[in-house]
């Protein structure tokens, strides 16, 4: 029984079809990475799945209880402290104030934020800390499904790696399922159980690859070797680095 199922989803912006006939499923506690070249409509698909965008056609079945999302930019409210930002979903869920504070502290700790950072405003935090706060906000309500929409694209390599480890650890301990949108094959291999490749024109899923082992248990050498293997020999990944920067979704 899949937690999330997309059935023949199609979407168009201003008459231009960006997605067509996309079907995919995410099982309980499974992390699925969705990769594809820039402009192939990955983010739009995540937004459709999360209910932010209404698809033009197709059906979405959500069997999870609660979802959360980590966006590409942290999307923290600049007028609220880190604690208030992390507690925002709890406030929306009408969690009592005292309990909220405890849950915020807990989520912040899991995302690697120190208690003294909680009173700071987003403008006082570094880029990495802001993304940590965004992850903590997603973890705060203890969701069973999280959408990651290219969350670490703007971070530098070292920071990116730490954030990936953070997500891997959190997924292992909190047991959420996730749809992880990325255009970084290495990231997809490190973080996910299964990789889906979106067709370059958004016309369906081009194919999928199961990654051997569990995220977190794979060593770096195997990860790099697999990436090399995919890029060199697997026709499925031949086009993922094609970029047409004139094409905007």
């Amino acid at each position: 029984m899949n937690l999330l199922e997309l059935n023949r989803i199609g979407h168009a912006f201003f008459g231009r079809t960006v997605l067509q006939g996309i079907s995919l499923g995410v099982a309980r506690q499974e992390i699925v990475a969705l990769i594809g070249p820039s402009g192939s409509g990955k983010s739009t698909l995540a937004h459709i799945a999360a209910g932010l965008v209404d698809p033009r056609e197709g059906r979405i079945i959500r069997r999870y209880l609660r979802h959360a999302m980590v966006f590409q930019d942290p999307r923290l409210m600049p007028w609220a402290t880190a604690a208030d930002n992390i507690g925002f979903p709890l406030r929306l869920a009408r969690v009592p104030r005292g309990m909220r504070r405890r849950l915020v502290a807990d989520a912040a700790l899991r995302a690697g934020l120190l208690p003294e950072d909680l009173g700071k405003y987003p403008s006082e935090l570094s880029g990495g800390m802001r993304q940590r706060a965004a992850i903590a906000r997603a973890l705060a309500t203890d969701p069973d499904f999280i959408y990651f929409d290219e969350p670490f694209t703007a971070l530098d390599v070292a920071l990116k790696r730490r954030m990936q480890d953070l997500v891997i650890e959190a997924a292992a301990s909190a047991r959420f399922a996730a749809l992880f949108i990325t255009h970084d094959l290495l990231e997809a291999i490190r973080i996910s159980h299964r990789i889906l490749v979106l067709d370059a024109g958004g016309r369906g899923i081009a194919g999928e690859r199961l990654i051997p082992g569990n995220p977190g248990s794979r060593d770096d050498q195997a990860v790099f070797a697999l990436r090399q293997d995919y890029l060199a020999a697997d026709p499925l990944f031949a086009h993922i680095h094609d970029i047409d920067e004139r094409l905007r979704p």
Binding site: H47, G51, L52, A68, F71, R75, M77, A93, T141, Y147
Partner: peptide
């Protein structure tokens, strides 16, 4: 910032 609107919508 419409991004914040989307954020709030995702969180219900």
């Amino acid at each position: 910032d419409r991004g914040l609107d989307d954020m709030a919508q995702v969180f219900g």
